[in-house]
Amino acid sequence: MIDFHGVTKRYGPVQALDGIDLRIEEAEFVALLGPSGCGKSTLLNLLAGFEAPSEGGIGFAGAAIGRPGPDRAVVFQDAALLPWLSVQDNVTFGPRMRGDAPAGYAARTAELLGLVGLQGFEDALPSQLSGGMRQRVGLARALVMQPRALLMDEPFGALDAQTRLAMQQLLLDVWQTLRTTVLFVTHDIDEAILLADRVCVMTARPGRILRDIPIDLPRPRSLALLTQPGFVAYKADIMQALHPGR
């Protein structure tokens, strides 16, 4: 479904990514985990089509990726909602720009707003919402495009701990319903194990994939998983990989 082969990215003299090979299957939830500056967000931006790799290529659904598009919808860390549009208008922005008839997306929009818990807030402006609610809008805005893959760039990184837990549970529930392919960038070990089928641990400068760890924990999952022995074992393994010898 997604296939990075030999992807290298340089910014001038700085090598951000070095020979990344990564395959992601259809309906797989993959977390990219690493310290800040390891190039994990760069990897996501390359897949989104925001930037081009210096070397190597990226395949998506059997073809080389091109310009950014709704088949690879992105959820940004700062939500990146358009502040002058209401929740409703932010979520329907993509379909409206594409020229879809309202009848074609009205039902889907209402359903998604319900799924992310935003019914009743359709007319609110982003500045009237909390950070967690803005991310729900960002998620709904991406999902309304019915993307083949969802690219999430530290979407809960700026939220407080309680809100983050609530959003993780929400994402687990949404994913259980939709089963979209997800590439999820994070620096939070718990978050990566809780959400993903596979955790790819990255090293910093130049960014390389150090370990590729399948997370064999049953679904549907919930926050209760965070304290179970199987979860803790994965956490110990990943901490060892990130901080060897400690």
């Binding site: 989104a48 089509g49 925001f50 310009r67 950014p68 598009g69 709704p70 690879r72 919808a73 992105v74 940004f76 700062d78 990146a80 909602l81 358009l82 922005f93 993509g94 720009m97 594409r98 805005r141 991406a142 495009m145």
Partner: peptide, 15 residues
Amino acid sequence: VERNWIRAALMLGSG
């Protein structure tokens, strides 16, 4: 203009 606003519009398929 915030870069991510433009990127968001791009990934939503706007010309």
